Amino acid sequence: MTHGAARREDESGSSAAVLTQAAEEQGTTPVALVAGAACVALAAAGLLTPVRGSGRTVSR
């Protein structure tokens, strides 16, 4: 295993711990809604981001 893979596992583990702690304090439903909204926002940002080096030119 490379160091990068180990770091990604640690980061995902810490976010799981944060979600678990939040769910214990706030309840599962609000935490799931916030986490889902964050995932949708991240996906939308990715869709709106241009791909570098795609060879397309932007006409103005």
Rank of each mutant, 00 (worst) to 15 (best):
M1F: 09
M1V: 06
M1R: 10
T2S: 15
T2R: 07
T2I: 00
H3S: 12
H3L: 11
H3V: 04
G4P: 01
A5V: 00
A5Y: 01
A5D: 11
A6T: 06
A6Y: 03
A6K: 10
A6W: 03
A6P: 00
R7I: 12
R8K: 12
R8N: 11
E9T: 09
E9L: 12
D10K: 12
D10C: 05
D10N: 08
D10G: 09
E11R: 05
E11T: 04
E11A: 11
S12H: 12
S12I: 10
S12L: 14
S12G: 01
S12A: 15
G13P: 00
S15D: 14
S15I: 11
S15V: 13
A16Y: 05
A16P: 00
A17Q: 13
A17C: 01
A17M: 07
A17G: 09
A17T: 04
V18A: 15
L19V: 06
L19P: 03
T20D: 15
T20I: 01
T20S: 15
Q21A: 15
Q21G: 14
A22R: 14
A22M: 13
A22N: 11
A23E: 12
A23Y: 02
E24F: 02
E24Y: 01
E25L: 12
E25R: 14
E25T: 12
E25W: 02
E25P: 00
E25H: 10
Q26R: 15
G27Q: 07
G27P: 04
G27Y: 02
T28K: 14
T29D: 15
P30D: 10
P30H: 09
P30N: 06
V31T: 07
V31E: 08
A32M: 08
A32F: 03
A32G: 02
L33F: 00
L33Y: 01
V34N: 05
G36Q: 06
A37M: 04
A37D: 09
A38M: 05
A38E: 09
C39E: 13
V40N: 02
V40M: 06
L42N: 07
L42Q: 10
L42C: 06
L42A: 14
A43I: 03
A43K: 01
A44S: 10
A44G: 06
A44W: 00
G46K: 08
L47P: 00
L47Y: 08
L48I: 05
L48V: 11
T49K: 14
T49Q: 15
P50I: 06
P50H: 07
P50N: 07
P50F: 06
P50M: 05
V51A: 10
V51T: 12
V51L: 11
V51Q: 08
R52M: 07
R52S: 13
G53P: 01
S54W: 01
S54D: 14
S54P: 00
G55N: 04
G55T: 04
R56F: 06
R56D: 10
R56T: 08
R56L: 11
T57E: 14
T57C: 09
T57V: 12
T57H: 13
V58E: 15
V58M: 13
S59R: 15
S59M: 10
R60W: 13
